[in-house]
Nucleic acid binder design. Structure first.
Lengths: 110, 110
DNA sequence: TCAATATTTCAAGAGTTATTGAATTATGAA
DNA sequence: TTCATAATTCAATAACTCTTGAAATATTGA
């Protein structure tokens, strides 16, 4: 994951509705939830929801899959983990106080 | 750390210059670096740098301290850790594959 | 086929963010 | 005090983001 991908992911998460969506989808597990369900959960109109889901998908943070009339969205655990890993990268090793959340062996000492 | 603080921190990081600044400061350790030094590091004019440092400081991600003519900026490891913790919150427990970076015991199972 | 449901796309407008260069403030040295 | 250095503030502009409601597309069931 490179700098511009990380910026895209951070930008995507740095918005109230989208942060709520991601947290909801992460909690939903790998099957995710249909757009309509997510819209109810985060109190968003259809077009507004679609706009935000599109940004999350574009950032690689969610994936979608049509099932009959519905489109199910789910969190990309891989991308979430990748972004977090990038953020932790320079903390580990040098500054263990920041990265008490890092597993031994995961740190990328630069 | 609440939702709006996290959004502020994510927004602050979701910009090329500021992401570079934070990564540089994290690497600098707790004494940080003077504004001028940071500006050279990230190829930024003084006013542009000041604008971005102000946003990072406002988000609580850096702190500043004047030493004679210079102002030293350093990363706030506490705020970085807090933001990362919030992002990992709902991943842990439910979805261990996302949080291979989490230390056992750090997870906030909701 | 026609109507209903689920979702996306589009265009307009309001608000926010980033960049630039010039002016300003603060500090220290000659 | 005067000059130089270090950094911030300001105003203008350009670019981007979010919201809204209306229209369009896709799918299914009667």
């Amino acid at each position: 994951m490179n700098e511009s991908q990380v910026i895209k992911a951070l930008s995507a998460l740095a918005q109230e509705t989208r942060l709520q969506i991601i947290r909801y989808l992460v909690a939903c597990g790998k099957d995710g939830a249909a757009a309509g369900t997510i819209g109810e959960e985060v109190n968003s109109s259809a077009s507004r929801l679609s706009f935000h889901l599109n940004i999350l998908e574009n950032a690689g943070l969610v994936t979608s899959k049509r099932v009959s009339r519905r489109i199910f969205y789910s969190a990309s655990y891989e991308q979430m983990g990748g972004m977090i890993g990038y953020l932790l990268e320079d903390c580990c090793g040098n500054h263990p106080e920041v990265t008490s959340c890092c597993m031994p062996g995961t740190s990328n000492i630069s």
